[in-house]
């Protein structure tokens, strides 16, 4: 891969987006116990079963001994101050970290009881099942139609042109974009507004019918109206997909998710029902964060 390290870039973006966590972290070493998560990290009908996950970049440990279940068809939000490892952790779920040479993932990560990082495991197939939407809308410099049709084409999901048309239309409908673009499917995607581009990226992800959709701060580059539109969309999608969303906006987490996980310096501090996390957090770090003492 080229020299641009995707994780580093996205972290750098976060630094611009939010203030850096204050330096008074020293006493918290005593508060956080590695591998210990308060609340309800486990679920019965787990889609992802993640146990003792550690991620390191060279000598730096980015994720420290995290265990978590992601249930079927739930929307789970990852929140926490910048650099807490929530994006890194998300990227483990469809192995987007593979392209970074120095990134090392250990522990057990299972999707439907199959190991994600098994050497025999096929990453292409995995990603076809676990789609991803990125922080910055990243449509390909092609037409709107080709953007959505890209996934089905490479996976050979459509045998006929009419099948493909149907998939594109359905995906765009689900992404709430059909009405806006149905007359200009041949226009290039880069000419759309930011919000439309992001919904197009969601449509593109839906088009391969994944089981899980990972969203890495999908609204951070969008204005409030576009954000509202995307959030609406997430609510509709939660009926058919498992959604994992990383967000730096606590309000957004509160609005869209069933469960919320709070990350802090590579630790998973607390996981619980969203309303519980925001109304009566169990861990004092969580409380500090959601009351705005830092973050």
């Amino acid at each position: 891969m080229n020299t641009i390290n995707p994780a580093v870039t996205s972290e750098a973006d976060q630094y611009q987006a939010e203030p850096v966590a204050p330096v008074r972290e020293q006493p918290e070493e005593t508060i956080i116990e590695e591998g210990k998560t308060v609340g309800r990290p486990f679920a019965d009908n787990a889609k992802f079963k993640l146990r003792d996950v550690n991620v390191s970049y060279g000598d730096t440990r980015a994720i420290k001994n995290i265990s978590l279940d992601v249930a079927k068809n739930e929307v789970i939000a990852f929140i926490g101050p910048s650099g807490c490892g929530k994006s890194t952790f998300l990227r483990c779920l469809n192995r987007m970290n593979d392209s970074i040479e120095i990134c090392k993932v250990t522990g057990s990560l299972q999707l439907d009881d199959q190991d994600i990082y098994d050497r025999r495991r096929d990453v292409v197939e995995l990603r076809a099942r676990v789609g991803m939407v990125f922080q910055k809308p990243n449509p390909f410099p092609k037409s709107i139609y080709d953007n959505v049709a890209y996934g089905p084409r490479i996976h050979g999901l459509a045998n006929r042109k009419s099948d493909l048309d149907e998939i594109v239309e359905n995906s765009l409908r689900k992404a709430g974009l059909w009405g806006e673009v149905k007359d200009r499917l041949d226009a290039t995607a880069t000419g759309m507004s930011g919000g439309q581009q992001q919904r197009l990226c969601i449509a593109r992800a839906i088009a391969v019918s994944p089981e899980v959709i990972l969203m890495d701060e999908p609204c951070s580059a969008l204005d409030p109206i576009a954000t509202a539109r995307v959030e609406e969309l997430m609510a509709e999608m939660s009926e058919s997909y498992t959604i994992v969303i990383v967000t730096h906006s606590m309000q957004q987490a509160a609005r869209v998710s069933n469960r919320t996980a709070y990350f802090h310096l590579g630790h998973l501090v607390e996981v619980n029902e969203t309303n519980k996390v925001f109304t009566s957090p169990e861990h004092e770090l969580t409380e500090s964060y959601i009351t705005g003492r830092f973050g």
């Binding site: 096929d122 197939e125 076809a128 099942r129 996976h155 050979g156 999901l157 391969v208 019918s209």
Partner: peptide, 10 residues
């Protein structure tokens, strides 16, 4: 059709 699509991909 998620299941069957996964099959096609495979």
């Amino acid at each position: 059709d998620q299941r069957s699509q996964a099959e096609i991909v495979r």
